[in-house]
Nucleic acid binder design. Sequence first.
DNA 1: GATAGAGTGAGTATCATTCTCAGTCAAGGG
DNA 2: CCCTTGACTGAGAATGATACTCACTCTATC
Lengths: 134, 134
Amino acid sequence: MEASPPATPNGKQQHLLEQLRRAAHELSGQDLHAQLRNTPQAMGLATVYRHLRQLQQRGLVRCRHLPSGEALFAPTERDEHHLTCVDCGRTVPLPACPMHGDDLSPQQLDGFQLLFHTLEFFGLCPLCQQRQQG
Amino acid sequence: MEASPPATPNGKQQHLLEQLRRAAHELSGQDLHAQLRNTPQAMGLATVYRHLRQLQQRGLVRCRHLPSGEALFAPTERDEHHLTCVDCGRTVPLPACPMHGDDLSPQQLDGFQLLFHTLEFFGLCPLCQQRQQG
DNA sequence: GATAGAGTGAGTATCATTCTCAGTCAAGGG
DNA sequence: CCCTTGACTGAGAATGATACTCACTCTATC
Ligand SMILES: [Mn+2]
Ligand SMILES: [Mn+2]
Ligand SMILES: [Zn+2]
Ligand SMILES: [Zn+2]
C-alpha cells in the first residue's frame, strides 16, 4: 500500500506539524486530511486526529472552537487570537496578543507546567449590529 | 401536556439563565437538561440548546470546550478562567481573570460591539509531569 | 526467520448538538 | 365566538466531528 518507505520514526507527525506551520491560517482536521490527499504524505483521518492530539499534549499545537462547532488548529508559536461575531460567525484576527506576555504567577500555576493559552473575544460585527437595529 | 400556563413570554429561557447563575460551576447542555427534569421548568434538549445559543448571542452566556469535546456554559458576569491539563484533562479555576479588565483598543475592536471573552490556559499538571518522567 | 513493538488506515461507533415538523398556545380581527 | 397568525415547544431523526477497532505492515532485535 505504501510506495515509499517511512523515512524516520514519527515522519508523518512531523509532516503534519510542518503543514500547519506552513499554512497561512488555522486548519481543521478535515482540512489537513484533505490537503495531504494525493501527496506522498497522505494519511488517514484517524492518523490526522491522533497526531493532532499528541502534538497538543506536547504543547506544539493549539486549537479553538468556532461557534459552528468545528475546531481549528494552529502551531502554538503563532500567538494569534480573534474577534468573532456571535451572530454571523465572522472572525477577524487581532493584530497582537492582548496579554503581551503577562504570564501566570507561580501561585496561579499551582504546579502546572504551562504550555499555551487560548484567548478569544466575542461580540457583534458592524453588519449584525445594523441588522438588529433596523 | 402543560399543566400550568406559561406565566410570561420567554419564561423558559429566563429559568435556564437563572439555573446557570445559581449553579456553583459551569454546566453542559446535557447537565442543564438533566437538572430541570422533573421540575416545573423541564424543557426538551432542543430547547435547552436553542436558548443557550440565543443567550450567547445576547452576551449573557459564554461557553468553553473541554478537550473531551463537551461544551460548558457559564453566565458572562462570572469572569472565570481555567488551567487545564492536556494529558489527564483535570481543570482548576484561576483565582482571578489575568486580563484584569484590559480591554481591546477601538482600533482592535474594528467596529465590533464586544460582549465577552474566553481565556484558557493549558499545560501539564504535577501528576502528569511525574508520570512522563518516571 | 521468529518475535515484539510501533505506526497506520478503512471502517465503524460514539455522542453532543442541530434539524424537522407537527402540536400547542396567545393574541387579534372580524 | 370562530379563525388566522406567529411564537414557542419537544420527540425523534439527522448530522458531523472525533475516537475506537483491529488487522496489517515495517523495523529492530535476537
Ligand atoms: Mn496569546
Ligand atoms: Mn476574563
Ligand atoms: Zn456578524
Ligand atoms: Zn494531568
